[in-house]
Design a protein around this nucleic acid. Structure first.
Ligand SMILES: [Zn+2]
Length: 390
DNA sequence: CGGTTTTGACCTGCGC
DNA sequence: GCGCAGGTCAAAACCG
């Protein structure tokens, strides 16, 4: 049982993060396990040298197997750690850049000055790392949207930001994923607890509300609802960023939603309107449609994974030049084509850090892995341990 | 028995 | 102010 789940996780992990694995390999000291394996190997050699060459060979293979197993385990834990760190750093980088930019251009951006990068940064602060102490009680506010401020910090800056957060609470970006699925919920690696269900107007299918239970203070929520027009389509909407370490299985989706939200909030929406859509092809020739919308009550990024194989890359409906850099960054990552190229006109807007993230193949891999896991869940079986009764 | 789901009540924002 | 709709709470039921 445990072995099975580990193997599944491993299969998902390795192709998605082989770059990270390479990186791990360079710094991982495997000498302990290697020498250990070798000593076993030598013992076997000395004992069975004359008697049975086949036995000898078998022991060699067994020792080799054992060594690989130990190596594999340490690599896995290492990879898990690297993934966690990577996700954390990624959030911090995006948020930090966003923070600097907003400091430069004044606190409130025109159009949609969403504050989630900063929020995710503070989410990280209330993580189990205590070295950053500038927490302002954001998650309290985010949790209790309508219950008034519960912060005692009297610093003017903090209060000002709190007020801004209050005004922005209703504008938290969301990342919506449309998938074809018979199951009640796509499995994204996280643990969720259902806390409500509503019949939304205009949709006979009820909308379910879930909250992340991997940490008691985690602000992440998601809504799951079937499409009214096509009930085979499952719409999963994520909101917020995890403030705790994630299992590798959940890392892909969390990274994608987090980066997508950060992408969206980082401003630079096309000036022509508050809604755009485009279609893209990833390396597996599966078509997705990405929609950014700021006109909805909540700014929402919709990732449409319901259209199979039929779309042409020519169907991009919006010229790339009208996209924000970060949008292109995300799309480039989703397509698995490596770092995107940016026009000179927009290079100024692009933070170096974002660029370096984009240039990191791990980033691309993570995004592609998210899609792969989603698609795997949709096209494969959709069993989710926490929702077997629906 | 602890965690999760169910479900009616409640809260809040918004349009009229 | 009122009604509506979306979202959340929390007690009870359920489950392993
Ligand atoms: Zn979480």
């Amino acid at each position: 049982m445990i072995g099975t789940s580990v193997r599944v996780k491993e299969d998902k992990l390795v192709p998605a993060h082989h770059q990270a694995l390479d990186h791990v390999n360079t710094c991982l000291n495997l000498s302990t396990s290697n020498s250990h394996g070798k000593s076993i190997l030598d013992d076997g050699l000395s004992r069975n040298k004359e008697n049975n060459p086949k036995m000898n060979e078998m022991e060699i293979l067994q020792a080799e197997l054992e060594r690989k197993r130990v190596e594999n385990q340490s690599l896995k834990s290492m990879l898990n750690q690297v993934n966690n760190d990577y996700y954390t750093l990624q959030l911090q980088l995006v948020a930090l850049r966003e923070d600097q930019k907003s400091n430069r251009h004044g606190r409130i951006r025109g159009g949609g000055g969403f504050d989630v990068a900063r929020q995710s940064f503070k989410d990280l602060n209330c993580d189990n790392r205590g070295e950053i102490s500038c927490r302002s009680g954001r998650d309290v506010q985010q949790e209790s949207t309508n219950k008034g401020p519960m912060i005692v910090d009297t610093s003017r800056d903090v209060l000002e930001q709190n007020q801004q957060n209050m005004s922005m609470t209703r504008r938290k970006p969301r990342v919506s994923v449309r998938t074809r699925s018979e199951a009640s919920m796509i499995s994204d690696g996280c643990q969720w607890r259902k806390y409500g269900q509503k019949l939304a107007k205009g949709n006979p299918c009820p909308r379910a509300y879930y909250r992340c239970t991997m940490a008691s203070t985690c602000p992440v929520r998601k809504q799951v609802q079937r499409c009214a027009l096509d009930r085979t389509i499952l719409i999963t909407t994520y909101e917020g960023n995890h403030n705790h370490p994630l299992p590798s299985a959940a890392m892909a989706m969390a990274s994608t939603t987090s980066v997508a939200a950060s992408t969206f909030l980082s401003g630079s929406m096309p000036s022509g309107g508050d809604h755009l859509g485009l279609q893209l092809m990833n390396s597996n020739a599966l078509a997705e449609t990405l929609t950014l919308s700021a006109s909805a009550p909540f700014p929402t990024i919709t990732l449409d994974l319901t259209q199979d194989h039929a779309l042409s890359p020519n169907s991009v409906s919006i010229p790339q030049s009208s996209l924000s850099n970060q949008s292109k960054l995300l799309l480039g990552g989703l397509q698995g084509i490596g770092p995107p190229h940016f026009s000179h006109a927009q290079t100024q807007v692009l933070p170096d850090t974002i660029s370096s993230i984009a240039a990191d193949p791990n980033f691309t891999e993570a995004l592609v892995a998210a899609l792969a896991s989603i698609l795997g869940n949709v096209h494969g079986n959709n069993n989710n341990s926490s929702n077997t009764r629906d």
